[in-house]
Nucleic acid binder design. Structure first.
Lengths: 208, 208
DNA sequence: GAAACTGTTGATCGAGTGATCAATTAGCTC
DNA sequence: GAGCTAATTGATCACTCGATCAACAGTTTC
């Protein structure tokens, strides 16, 4: 059994490392996020995540008994972390209009494309994975709330005059998603989408 | 072997029917479209399509040797047929503004939701299926051309004043996709998206 | 009516999946 | 340092998938 014919003959018999459940679980969740961002949510399998971390597939199954839930949780982690970044981008700004512009600008940042890919995949896989669909709805609600709050502040400050902040927030969110999904497939030929987009949004908000 | 323990004991040994290649191929393509619209592009497998049509899986493989291409072709058929319907909705109208409104209205019709589901899935699966990705890009180009022509006509007629019809067409297409994808997950709580949307689009176009 | 052509069947292969679990062993406790 | 707990391993099962192909059987041709 020593130095058996494994794909890596020179590799040691894998020195078994024993960690605390909390630490190991966190490692597994992080590895899943890496896999999802690099190869898509569909690439999250017991064996793929195990290989990413260099452990046995059974260990991943031990901490994530149901792969469907594992996929949903991984999406939720990625989406929440991404949203936290966007929120941080507007944290220091006190002017409502500036905050909205910061949110929109970072939302359409090309560095967020891997996250958009995960979103698009989650929309599709959500048809088969109820836990994932629920996570998607939850995260969409959080985004809508984020936008709604900024719009509401803008209205209070007299910058906007939208009669229905909640509805407009959904509208803006839909635009963000659509433009990002489009950029995923075609980022060429559409230069500087942000300017037109910002204009359209502020018109929706009844900017003064 | 007669009346073996198949899932349907009362079913005959399946009376073999022999059809012309063209007719059979068309049947298979239609069956795939039905499966895709009902259960998603991911449900297109040799066995699933064969079952839909009541034939052997080998027959489907005979006419569609590569499933990846089969999926791409099915998407292309669905998307093209859907776009043809939208085009027909504006065929009789000669006024550019009316035609744009007709396009947008039918684009956001809730009856198109199954098609939107196919689109979203195609975006996600396109990462793994190059033929599908190519079909998606091709279809997006066709949509953009459709919108661009309407906008161009509007500009010629003096209704719009957008400086860059092509860019605005991409923008509008992104909005359509985003709102439809959103409606796929959340069609509740967002009443009457069309009114705000139309207003935003016409502002983008510099409507007079 | 026989024979040739070819549309069609259904089994089969290898690969990949989620799930399960007895066996192993690392690291803590005393 | 011995014992023990439980973290970890790796094999295994049943399943689905795309792909392949020898065998079967309608349909046409002569």
């Amino acid at each position: 059994m020593s130095t058996k014919n494994s794909p890596e003959p020179s590799a040691r018999p894998a020195p078994r490392v024993r960690k605390s459940p909390a630490e190991r679980h966190a490692e597994i969740q992080d590895a899943a996020a890496v896999v999802a961002l690099e190869e898509g949510l569909a690439a999250i399998t017991l064996r793929r995540v195990a290989r990413q971390l260099g452990v046995a597939s059974g260990l991943v199954a031990h901490y994530e008994p149901r792969v469907e839930d594992f996929v949903a949780a991984t999406f939720a982690r990625i989406a929440a972390a991404d949203r936290a970044e966007v929120e941080q981008a507007m944290a220091g700004l006190d002017d409502a209009a500036l905050r909205l512009r910061a949110v929109l600008a970072s939302s359409l940042d090309s560095e967020r494309l891997p996250v958009t890919a995960v979103w698009v995949e989650a929309w599709g896989l959500g048809r088969r994975n109820e836990a994932l669909a629920a996570a998607v709805r939850e995260e969409m609600d959080a985004w809508q709330e984020l936008l709604r709050n900024v719009i509401r502040d803008g209205i209070r400050a007299g910058v906007y005059s939208a009669p229905d902040p909640a509805a407009v927030a959904w509208q803006v969110l839909g635009m963000i998603d659509g433009l990002n999904a489009q950029a995923l497939v075609r980022w060429e030929g559409v230069p500087d989408r942000r300017e037109h987009f910002l204009s359209a949004v502020e018109h929706l908000l009844g900017a003064t």
